[in-house]
Write a protein that binds this DNA or RNA. Structure first.
Lengths: 204, 204
DNA sequence: ACTAAAATGTATATATTAATATCAATAGTT
DNA sequence: AACTATTGATATTAATATATACATTTTAGT
């Protein structure tokens, strides 16, 4: 039944999801593939094709029911299954992510934030107290967390990653501009901001 | 001569670039496609294929010269041509980006940061004074800037985008979880953090 | 000098993905 | 009943990615 969904489709589906949230705020009940397509400057048949991967169907002449479609996307992409994570590095980026309200809507629950700067430890960010790095391992174990969001300065990235591997973290969402060397059983997703920017501007 | 480089290749090239920077820090002069491939868990022939898109050649048994390869990537991806941008929104994310030292290495120069919060205006971030939004248009014109980095809260995203369009901004790097409606002559790149995260975790 | 090993560069094959176009069927509207 | 907008499905075409293979080149070791 379930078809494999490619990265580009996942990305588009989350954009559709943003649009649907917006339509709900505006109390609009229906949406057509054409409306979505125009907002994203893509082809409407592609939107329909993506939506057909969900277990959802629209109606001729009407389009899709906004609320239903939104829920379909959430189910398919697994928003409903909560994923627990820790943030490592309470700098601006770590703080921004800790405060980024939307993550919870998408099933990403951030449980704690860590730093090794004594001036930061103990301060509160979005209801979470910044903890000493040395407590990380115990917290990860206690709360059964295997995702770490790495936002430390680049020069500490590898040593911090080594520490995370020791703490049995299995997935690292890496916001540092560093390619991490980790064992095969640990997965890294490089949030390569500069790469993304260049994709955007390469053809300017 | 110049072949079109796809998004995925651009992304990989920037990761190679991170690795090369790291090798330079460690004073290592040569690097092989196999070494790069192992760090990124990809195939070494793909690394060679990517590198062949640059005007660079390696040596059998030796590999590539780290410094030369790094410069080749920079030339090809246009790091050398400076792109000027403004940040809109001096919250944590805007501040994080303003402080993110690596952007300058990659040819992205951030010239100013704007907010409409009177408590923030006048404060200094990374040498830049936070300016009132109303000054944006004049600054963009004076400095000939057409890229805006949008980091305001989601609910203000569309109205701010309208303002940017009026200020003749042509490229918006959108960090808000909102699909913006803009005229056809304005390009938006959605930095869809949640989409990226889901690509990472979808198969967990 | 010879051989073995390591690495590139290129070619090929296969699979996957993307993007667009087309059109019958359907459901509302007039 | 005719008209129109819209879906859903299929077809087409192009682009992309990935993996495998191998001839060639260069160095290192003996």
């Amino acid at each position: 039944m379930d078809k494999k969904i490619s990265d580009k489709v996942i990305n588009r589906l989350t954009l559709y999801h943003c649009i649907l949230s917006d339509f709900i705020d505006k109390n609009i009940e229906h949406i057509s593939s054409k409306q979505i397509a125009e907002l994203l400057h893509i082809d409407d048949s592609q939107v329909r094709k993506d939506i057909n991967l969900l277990n959802n169907s629209g109606k001729s002449r009407i389009g899709y029911i906004v609320k239903e479609l939104k829920i379909s996307i959430e189910k398919t992409l697994g928003f409903k299954k909560t994923k627990k994570a820790l943030i490592i590095g309470a700098g601006n980026l770590g703080t921004a992510i800790a405060n980024y309200g939307n993550f919870t809507d998408y099933g990403l629950k951030i449980l704690a934030i860590f730093d090794n700067d004594k001036n930061k430890i103990g301060k509160i960010i979005n209801g979470m107290e910044i903890q000493n790095m040395y407590e990380l391992s115990a917290t990860a174990l206690k709360e059964d967390i295997d995702i770490a969001i790495l936002t430390v300065p680049g020069k500490y990235a590898q040593s911090t990653a080594d520490f995370l591997v020791n703490a049995h973290i299995k997935y690292i969402w890496n916001f540092t501009p560093t390619v991490l060397s980790v064992p095969n059983n640990v997965q890294v997703w490089n949030e390569n901001l500069m790469g993304n920017f260049l994709q955007f501007t390469y053809n300017i």
